[in-house]
Computed example of a mutant assay.
Amino acid sequence: MKFHALAASFCLFALSAPSALADDAADIRSRLHNWAEDFNEGRTDAACGLFSKDLVSDTQGQGETNYETRCKLISRVMHDPARKFRYAADIKEVIVEGDLAIVRLQWTLTVSPGNEASTESGLDVFRKEADGVWRIIRFMAFQNE
């Protein structure tokens, strides 16, 4: 009898594992789209909330930055009185493995006045942190030419 209960428990766990990974991937996708909305609406604290305090990022023209520097850059751009910056995400792929995930994506940045658009390809590494929230611990982004 114990064997049947154990086998049934194992089957339920095995069947739920792909579902949990899909839920994590959906959560990460949602966090990225929410980040764009937060950025576009000037919500600095919410936008910075996507990043881990352990962040290391590398972007073309800015070099390597940490959490504090990245959030200062975001805040400065979001509150630029002369220009309006808007981001949109095109998520190409989300791979979840345990408490780490890798996201391949493309960001479109539109700057007004002038509606000048540029695209950046990026690779984000997320970690599910102790509070259960997925945050970016590493990312690289480079402007497409």
Rank of each mutant, 00 (worst) to 15 (best):
A47C: 03
E120L: 15
Q62W: 13
R76Y: 05
S57M: 08
K2G: 12
E116R: 13
E97S: 11
K84R: 09
N144Q: 08
S112W: 03
R70C: 09
E64G: 04
V56L: 07
V103M: 06
C71L: 01
I102V: 14
T59A: 13
S16I: 11
S121H: 12
D45C: 02
G114M: 04
R138Q: 00
C71T: 05
L12P: 08
K53C: 05
T65K: 07
L105G: 07
A7L: 15
A17R: 11
A36N: 09
F3C: 10
F126A: 07
S30N: 08
A130M: 11
E120V: 14
H4K: 15
G49D: 05
F142Q: 13
I28W: 00
D38C: 05
D54T: 08
A88D: 08
M1V: 14
D23I: 01
D131I: 09
G98L: 12
Q143K: 09
A130V: 14
R86A: 10
I91V: 14
V77M: 14
E41H: 04
P113W: 06
Q60L: 06
K84Y: 03
A117L: 04
F139G: 00
N40H: 03
N66Q: 11
L21P: 01
L109F: 03
I102L: 13
C71H: 00
R29P: 03
M140W: 14
D54R: 10
I74H: 05
E41Q: 09
V133P: 03
D80G: 03
N115Q: 04
A130Y: 10
S16M: 13
E41S: 10
A26W: 05
V56R: 00
K92Q: 12
D23C: 02
E145T: 08
E64A: 09
V94P: 01
S30Y: 06
L100M: 12
G61F: 00
I137P: 03
R138L: 00
A88G: 05
I74S: 07
E41W: 01
A117V: 05
A47E: 04
G42S: 03
S16Q: 12
F126Q: 06
H79Q: 09
G49L: 03
F13M: 15
R31S: 11
W134D: 06
V96Q: 02
Y87Q: 11
L50A: 04
E37D: 10
A82H: 11
F13V: 15
A14P: 00
C48Q: 04
L55E: 00
R135K: 08
I95P: 08
E120C: 13
A82N: 14
D99V: 02
G132F: 08
S30E: 10
C11R: 11
T69E: 13
L50H: 02
M140Y: 13
E41K: 03
D80L: 06
C71W: 01
H4D: 15
I28K: 04
T44Y: 03
E68Q: 13
D24K: 01
F3A: 15
E93M: 11
N34S: 14
L32C: 07
A130F: 12
I136G: 01
F142W: 11
L55R: 01
R76W: 04
R29H: 09
A25T: 09
N115K: 02
L55N: 01
F142Y: 13
Y67R: 03
F3G: 12
K84H: 08
L21Q: 10
I136A: 05
H4T: 15
F142S: 12
